[in-house]
Simulated scan of single mutants.
Amino acid sequence: MRILHLSDTHLFGDPAARHYDRIDTAAALRGLLARLEGLDAIDAVVHTGDASEDGTAESYRLLHEILDPFAAELGAPLVVVMGNHDVSAVYSESIAPGQRTAARQDRVVSLPGGDRVVVLDSSVPGAGYGHLEPDQLRWLREVLAAPAAGETVLAIHHPPLVGATALLRGLDLDGLDALAAELAGSSVRIVLAGHYHHEMSGAIGGVPVHVAPGVTNVVDPLGAGADEQALALSGVSVVEIDEGAPRVVSSVLPNAGDALEDIGRPVYRFDPAQVARILEVAGR
């Protein structure tokens, strides 16, 4: 099983809008896909959330206008997960009605050959952090109790890993022990996530976790000291599942939607006081 893993495109319904008044997110996505010419043998294209920045139906139509033909050319199904900037109800009603638990979009996407992607919606309306309700965990338990003919992958926006920075730790996924209990000993081969905007790896319940770098920008978790910063880069991963541990390869490239010639200038840089204000509004 070979997956193209994208995340955090932050598309707008308004074509004139720019992320942090700088990044043309549609151009960033198109430019990244153009650099993947020649990619083949992909079984699924998985987008792990924050597909939209504004949660509009127009932004989701743009997402599919760009990604549907790309995935079709690869002969691969497209799987889209909801993130904290997304609006699950808008996506579900206007784009992809499917199996849902409560108000969230949780579903199983069956792939050719018997593989499957199990999608969990960890978004919380109006918040930046992630949460899974007890009924979602019960639903996950029931899904995993029914064995698949092939491989099982879990896709979720908020990584089930502790964040690498103060901002990300304030916007991470809660209830990790409960999720770990559902995954331990299960058929899930890897958990795919986004949200952090930088590549990260770890494990939960004995299952490997991969966090894809962002398409709209890439967070620098090590080089900003006490500050938080993101760079004008775009990232993508390919996940290969066979015998043994999954193999992940990532690329980080210049952002094709960057409006500035000085690509070394951060897209944003927040000091600790700014981070505290963000967490007051969006954090747990």
Rank of each mutant, 00 (worst) to 15 (best):
A148V: 00
A256T: 11
V209S: 08
N84F: 08
A149Y: 00
D115H: 15
E53R: 15
T9M: 07
P112Y: 00
I23Y: 14
A230I: 02
R247T: 15
H85K: 09
G55V: 02
V162A: 12
G13S: 05
D177Y: 08
S7M: 06
A256S: 14
L260R: 07
A164H: 00
V117C: 06
L74I: 06
G170K: 12
P272C: 13
S234Y: 10
M82C: 08
L36N: 05
T56P: 13
W139R: 09
G150T: 05
A102H: 09
Y60W: 10
I42Q: 11
E280T: 08
H197Y: 03
P97F: 05
G130D: 02
A51N: 04
G175K: 02
L253E: 13
L67Y: 10
V143I: 14
G214K: 02
R22A: 02
G163M: 03
Q229L: 15
D54P: 09
H158V: 08
A89N: 01
S237D: 09
H85I: 06
Q136K: 13
I204P: 01
H10I: 13
I95S: 06
A17M: 11
V153M: 08
V90N: 11
S92R: 15
L74N: 12
A226K: 09
A166C: 02
G75F: 04
V238A: 11
R22E: 01
V248F: 03
G264H: 04
G38C: 05
L231P: 04
A148P: 01
V211T: 09
D68R: 05
Q274N: 12
V90M: 11
P221F: 05
L176V: 08
A164M: 02
R269V: 01
D68I: 00
G128E: 06
V124C: 08
A245D: 10
I278R: 08
H47M: 13
L231S: 10
R265Q: 08
D177W: 07
Y60V: 04
G264K: 00
A57H: 12
N217R: 03
D14F: 05
G38W: 01
A44T: 02
P159T: 11
I204Q: 00
P147G: 06
Q274Y: 07
E93Y: 10
P15K: 09
R247Q: 12
S250N: 12
V248I: 15
S52P: 14
E280H: 06
A245M: 11
R35K: 11
P15M: 08
R61T: 08
A155K: 01
L279R: 03
H157A: 14
I66V: 15
V219D: 00
L173A: 10
D115A: 14
L260T: 03
D135Y: 06
L183M: 09
Q274P: 06
L33E: 10
S251D: 11
L120D: 03
D115Y: 02
V188L: 09
P272N: 12
R169G: 10
R138F: 03
P147K: 01
A41K: 13
E151N: 04
R116Q: 11
L154I: 04
P69K: 04
S201D: 11
T56M: 13
A166T: 10
E228R: 14
P266T: 12
P272V: 14
E280W: 01
W139A: 14
S187C: 09
V236I: 13
V118N: 07
R138L: 13
D8E: 01
E37Y: 00
M1G: 12
V249S: 13
R61M: 05
